[in-house]
């Protein structure tokens, strides 16, 4: 198992607080790996570190052997690691389709000047982005709302759009922060299928943070558990479910109960 993404002894301090404490794990190509843990465990912070939205205090993150920690978000995105946000994050005043089209930015062949002048390359780009956007819209089942302004959408659609935006960048690794939050059971299972197909059909490696344990157990190849910033377990869903330390960590917290 050659690691595509490798998190190596990553630590993040906020003043006196250690939000992420010496966490290491590897993600293989085409794997779906979930990071779970109680609220405040440091999961979102871990995602911010991997995507360079914030800088590590120590340790490093490697993509195919190249360091991607302590760069800037757009550089990491260019290298193929793209995050979605915990709160549904979209371009509010754009239509669904425009949200997706603009997110093809990294795939531009033409320069901004080329787009300004309407060069042949730019027109080819525009046509390609349009086709790809329609493809993603269909993949995520957003056809009915493609021309809706994003701010009018309900939660479930916002989450799907957030994923569409991530997908449009053409990522190698997609980091999904609580992609099923605010969804009912059916919507969640639908999304679980989509995430699977993201991997199966499009070869995207998925790293996700999620609270919905049923979904996590169903979707993950492997799971990493963190508590108070530290990794306390790593393994297959069934191994994690019977791990004493994990059960203890979760019994200690009020709002999360592990199980199917």
């Amino acid at each position: 198992m050659a690691a595509l993404l490798s998190v190596q002894g990553v630590t993040k301090r906020y003043g006196g607080l250690i939000a992420v404490n010496n966490v290491s794990f590897d993600v293989a190509a085409s794997e779906i790996l979930s990071v779970i843990g109680p609220n405040g465990a440091g999961k979102s912070t871990l995602f911010k570190l991997i995507s360079s939205f914030t800088q590590v205090t120590s340790g490093k993150v490697l993509l195919e052997g190249d360091r991607i920690s302590n760069l800037t978000p757009h550089v990491v995105a260019r290298k193929g690691v793209v995050r979605t946000f915990q709160e549904a994050t979209i371009f509010r005043a754009m239509t669904v389709r425009d949200n997706i089209i603009v997110s093809h930015h990294l795939r531009s062949q033409a320069s901004l000047l080329g787009f300004f002048l309407g060069s042949a390359k730019a027109r080819a780009d525009e046509a390609a982005f349009g086709d790809s956007a329609d493809d993603i819209i269909e993949f995520l089942g957003l056809q009915g709302i493609a021309n809706e302004v994003a701010s009018n959408l309900p939660q479930g659609h916002l989450r799907a759009l957030g994923m569409a935006i991530g997908l449009a960048t053409g990522p190698k690794v997609l980091l999904l922060d609580e992609p099923f939050a605010g969804m009912n059971h059916d919507e969640t299972m639908h999304m679980v299928n989509l995430v699977r197909r993201l991997r199966d059909d499009r070869g995207v490696t998925v790293l996700l943070v999620e609270h919905d344990m049923a979904a996590v157990m169903k979707i993950s190849d492997r799971i990493v558990v963190i508590n108070f910033g530290q990794k306390i377990a790593e393994g297959t869903p069934s191994a994690i479910q019977s791990n004493d330390q994990v059960i203890e960590a979760y019994l200690g917290s009020e709002d999360d109960v592990i199980g199917m």
Binding site: H74, I90, L112
Partner: peptide
């Protein structure tokens, strides 16, 4: 007018509406 209706304008709108998300889709904000 041409700027606003070309890709540069579209990227500027993405910046205006959500800088963090713009950065995460690879825009050098």
């Amino acid at each position: 007018w041409r700027i606003v209706n070309s890709r540069l304008g579209h990227l500027c709108r993405s910046l205006q509406q959500n800088e963090e998300l713009a950065a995460s889709i690879g825009v050098n904000i």
